[in-house]
Design a protein around this nucleic acid. Structure first.
Lengths: 235, 235
DNA sequence: GAGAAAAATATGTATAGACATATATACCAT
DNA sequence: ATGGTATATATGTCTATACATATTTTTCTC
């Protein structure tokens, strides 16, 4: 008397049906929807399948779920956009351009106070400072200006950063558990303009990134992209 | 002889153990890991539990999984950062500031060619053009410059956009299924500078957003943020 | 009525078992 | 060798069942 084990009701189809009801205003924003057990009966599938579908929609921000309180349609759906943060080499390759890399400078130095604070370094303590230019074909793509806590990235001081960018070396060799990302706009100063082959004063997108392994900040990097660069994603 | 139904092995604990092995280089980047069935036996839980843990790690970009081929540790983990795109009112409120809104202009007009192309509008056909300023306390926060296809947003022509921003009206009243987002940097021209209370030439972060319901583009908006604004997220 | 304790309930999750599906690999015919 | 076909296998998913957990609601006590 059991249903066939694999029914026509996949969790994706359940999710599609729920989405349809939300979009048709059958279940308007802010309203409660039936509980999992009832939905399972109505739609003719197991509760686990409904759970999978609703959990997915909750992750996407379409539903709000709370134990005992039930599930409601999000009143103002907070849309989540997923940014893919690839290794720069891969990002350039995805554009169909040959990737190039040039190490500009590499030195141990005491970072400026703001960077020292970000890295939680005692004042005056030195860190590894690396600047590099990534190229897309013959054109400058992005400038990487990075500070690294050597103690948090064992081996970095022996790495040949003229061959492999710090970006890639760290991704491959320094495990990390968390990080922050922030975007802003800056004006090209003379140095940036020369490196990125644009006019001084050109507005540029800048991405600041920190990477941590547990509580310890491994690296802080500023990526300044070439003029006209846009970061794209879909919702 | 069954294990107790709720064992100490939750899918989160399985995920933590897998992550530990990856980070300790027991399973180095690029290497295969045991299949689900074997892992389930080794870790003393059901395969479904292992599946849940590994699926989660695959979604996070830590693992690559393919049917029949098995599961391997991602060689260069593509990090995914999740951007929360809240309604502007909520974003300002989250900063602890009172939210303000001022409609700058509202008119039906034929959009410039680039916008017409984005909206898939026939040349010369009019669309609703709305410009508004969102305030954080007394300070300008972001300028919204938006074109709307009225046919795709029934009711928008009757909405009182001097009270509710087009942003909010659309979120609440126009169902949408997909969209694109792109970030770039622009320089403040005289008009932007005046509205955003900054010097002409200041670099500003600009977000371009399109929203679609199925194949039909509902709206295209450009959000130009105040000087110094940073978009933040965590990895 | 106020506050604490108990019951009810919706979601969250684990399990065993079965089948579905993609695809790597082995095998076979040419 | 080459190309097509069969087979094996790892992941993907559904089901039924049971228990866990967070809250809300109700009931009891003072």
């Amino acid at each position: 008397m059991n249903q066939p084990t694999q029914s026509a009701h996949t969790w994706q189809s359940i999710r599609a049906e729920v989405l349809r009801r939300i979009r048709s205003r059958e279940w308007p924003p802010g309203s409660m929807i039936p509980n999992e057990a009832d939905l399972a009966i109505e739609l003719g599938c197991a509760r686990a399948t409904v759970n999978r579908a609703l959990r997915d929609l909750a992750e996407a921000g379409v539903l709000d779920r709370r134990r005992r309180a039930g599930t409601r349609v999000a009143a103002t759906p907070v849309r989540r956009a997923v940014l893919q943060i690839p290794v720069i080499r891969d990002e350039v390759a995805a554009l169909g351009q040959p990737y190039g890399y040039r190490l500009l400078s590499r030195e141990m130095a005491a970072p400026p106070p703001t960077v020292a604070a970000t890295l939680s370094l005692p004042t005056g303590e030195a860190a590894l400072h690396v600047r590099a230019l990534h190229l897309s074909g013959a054109h400058p793509f992005v400038i990487e200006d990075r500070w690294i806590t050597p103690a948090a990235a064992p081996g970095i001081l022996d790495a040949d950063l003229s061959q492999v960018s710090a970006n890639e070396w760290l991704v491959r060799n320094a495990p990390f558990t968390a990080g922050t990302l922030s975007f802003g706009a800056v004006c090209a100063d003379d140095q940036l303009a020369a490196l990125l082959d644009c006019a001084s004063g050109t507005p540029l997108l800048r991405l600041d990134r920190t990477t941590a392994d547990g509580a310890r900040i491994v690296t802080a990097a500023a990526l300044t992209y070439h003029a006209g660069y846009r970061l794209r994603t879909t919702i």
